[in-house]
């Protein structure tokens, strides 16, 4: 894995008219003055608003140069994420990644996004779907949109898939992230199968994604319902360190993560009219859920330990 953050910064448009510093030493990577020039170029874009945001609020420049770069140390050094089956993610065209959701605050979405950006040969952007609650939150909702997330609803999912984007959804929602530690790696109900009808109507493959390691980062041993209601949250987590240790309690435990993408499930063969067949939608929903659950159990059996 080469320094993707550097690579992304080099790709930024308008870099050729940078007039700072001397001539670069050939064959020796970007020189200090070139790097300074590029960084200032980036800052100038940001200061003058000279960048593009798509209809969903995705800001690729900010995402690649700042947001993903900020998460990369967590990904590489803290969780030491290992990725398997990346070849199951298509190099182009629409596809729907469906994953298990865990870990109290849902860091798994960001880690899967970064896994595909860094490890996939095409360095694809993963467009994640989130609940309404996420977008009602200040800062978190804003950053999620800038990182390519949008509301988990049929119109948005289908619009992204039709545009050939790689989309991801975590159908367990808050039931997945807010479950007790004793229920770890047990998949919760998979919503109403809306994601399956979106995949059927656009004819894109569904790629099951199983994540091991995410459950242990904040082992939720209790839920303070009263506090949750007070703050308008879906749940208020109590972990061995939170809220007892204050700010230290928000440091996630350094569990070892494995992200595994399974064999894609083809939906194009059913035809787009199949999206209106609730029986088929339920069947495929169950099939996807069973696949992810099965892979999780298999990965857990082979696991050497929580932290290595």
């Amino acid at each position: 894995m080469v320094g993707v953050s550097d690579a992304q910064i080099l790709q930024m448009p308008g870099a050729e008219d940078s007039q700072t510093g001397e001539v670069a030493v050939p064959g020796d990577g970007p020189s200090w003055s070139d790097q300074v020039g590029l960084a200032l170029e980036f800052l100038r874009h940001r200061a003058l608003g000279e960048y593009r945001v798509d209809a969903f609020g995705f800001d690729p420049e900010l995402n690649d140069s700042v947001l993903m770069a900020a998460l990369r140390p967590l990904y590489r050094h803290w969780f030491r994420v290992e990725v398997r089956g990346i070849e199951h993610i298509p190099a182009e065209g629409g596809a729907l990644v469906v994953g298990n959701h865990a870990g109290t605050i849902g860091l798994d979405t960001a880690m899967v996004q970064l896994a595909i950006l860094d490890e996939h040969p095409a360095h694809r952007h993963l467009r994640t779907l989130g609940g309404e609650f996420l977008f009602s939150l200040p800062f978190v909702g804003m950053l999620a949109r800038k990182a390519g997330a949008t509301l988990a609803c049929t119109p948005d999912a289908e619009r992204l898939l039709r545009a050939g984007e790689l989309v991801a959804v975590w159908p367990e929602g808050y039931k997945g992230t807010g479950k007790r530690f004793s229920e770890r790696y047990r998949l919760q109900r998979f919503g109403r199968g809306g994601f399956v009808s979106a995949a059927l109507s656009t004819g894109v493959p569904i790629v099951p994604c199983s994540v091991v390691g995410s459950e242990e980062i904040y082992p939720m041993i209790g839920n303070a319902r009263l506090l949750a209601r007070l703050f308008g949250l879906p749940y208020f987590p109590i972990t061995p360190t939170f809220p007892w240790l204050g700010p230290l309690g928000v440091v996630p435990l350094p569990s070892k993560w494995v992200i595994e993408f399974g064999e894609p499930i083809d939906t194009a063969a059913f035809g787009s009219a199949a999206a209106d067949d609730p029986m088929l939608v339920f069947e495929i929903t169950d099939q996807v859920r069973e696949t992810i659950q099965h892979n999780l159990y298999r990965m857990l059996v082979r696991r050497r330990g929580l932290f290595r």
């Binding site: 940078s18 007039q19 700072t20 510093g21 001397e22 200090w32 003055s33 300074v36 020039g37 200032l40 170029e41 800052l43 100038r44 200061a47 003058l48």
Partner: peptide
């Protein structure tokens, strides 16, 4: 208030200073 000329000017000055360091 924050004109493109001002920002470009700041970029040039900062670039000279930072390149000078190395």
């Amino acid at each position: 208030v924050l004109s493109p000329d001002l920002v470009s000017g700041a970029e040039t000055v900062a670039g000279r200073i930072l390149s000078g360091w190395s």
